[in-house]
């Protein structure tokens, strides 16, 4: 088969076309390809919204599944090159998140800015020796900004991850973790919250007495 670049028609067109037109057409072409990938390989429910510059990288058998009413803000990067991304309903992904498969995320998970949810290990082993790790995040988890969730971590329901924490171990249900590496602070924080609730109740009582 003759190389298309040696044909006279190709040479003629290339000599006429100015270089800026080539650059622009290349950009437009890749934009269309990316948009096609986004439409073809993300299975999404109703009312899913993508922000500005959503980037989606993929590799053959893997896909992303997004539940209803999930909102993905600007500058997100989703990468399914080594596993599926499964997201539940009514999640909120903040600015500039990075999600790499294989990841499974429950319903009503909300993340802050610059959160990284990582599925795969770095490929230091041969590809067939890599044991696939799967990151699992439960329902109603709040991941605060700048935190990193490493591969193979399981986070229980109703957990809260404070800002800038690096989660390396599994997190039980309903706990509050923070720091690098993430530590379980729920016993200490619960005391603070109980006291805050108590303060509010006392203030309400004082206000009631004043109004009476």
């Amino acid at each position: 088969m003759e190389n298309i670049k040696n044909t006279s028609l190709f040479k003629a067109i290339e000599s006429i076309t100015p270089s800026f037109v080539k650059a622009i057409s290349k950009k437009v072409f890749w934009k269309i390809v990316r948009y096609y990938h986004r439409c073809r390989y993300i299975k999404k429910g109703r009312f899913v919204e993508f922000g500005y510059r959503f980037r989606f990288d993929r590799k053959h058998p893997y896909r992303a599944y997004i539940g209803e009413r999930t909102i993905i803000e600007d500058f997100n990067v989703w990468n399914t090159q080594s596993g599926n991304i499964v997201v539940g309903e009514r999640c909120w992904f903040g600015l500039n998140n990075i999600v790499m498969g294989p990841v499974e995320i429950g319903n009503k998970v909300s993340t802050g800015q610059y959160v990284m949810i990582l599925g795969p290990r770095h490929p230091v082993f041969a590809p067939d020796q890599i044991k696939r790790h799967k990151t699992t995040i439960g329902n109603n988890v709040w991941i605060s900004s700048g935190s990193i969730i490493l591969f193979g971590v399981t986070i229980g329901d109703n957990a809260i991850i404070s800002a800038g924490s690096v989660v390396t171990k599994d997190i039980p249900e309903g706990s509050f973790v923070g720091g690098n590496p993430a530590r379980n602070l729920s016993a200490l924080v619960n005391k603070t919250w109980k006291q805050a609730d108590q303060n509010i109740i006392e203030q309400a009582k004082i206000l009631e007495d004043m109004s009476l």
């Binding site: 404070s162 923070g178 720091g179 602070l185 200490l188 924080v189 005391k191 603070t192 006291q195």
Partner: peptide, 18 residues
């Protein structure tokens, strides 16, 4: 004086203390 009840130390402060 309780650090947590008086709000002297919050969750990030605990990490600094530790």
């Amino acid at each position: 004086t309780s650090f947590l009840e008086t709000g002297i130390i919050d969750s990030t402060g605990i990490l600094e203390l530790v």
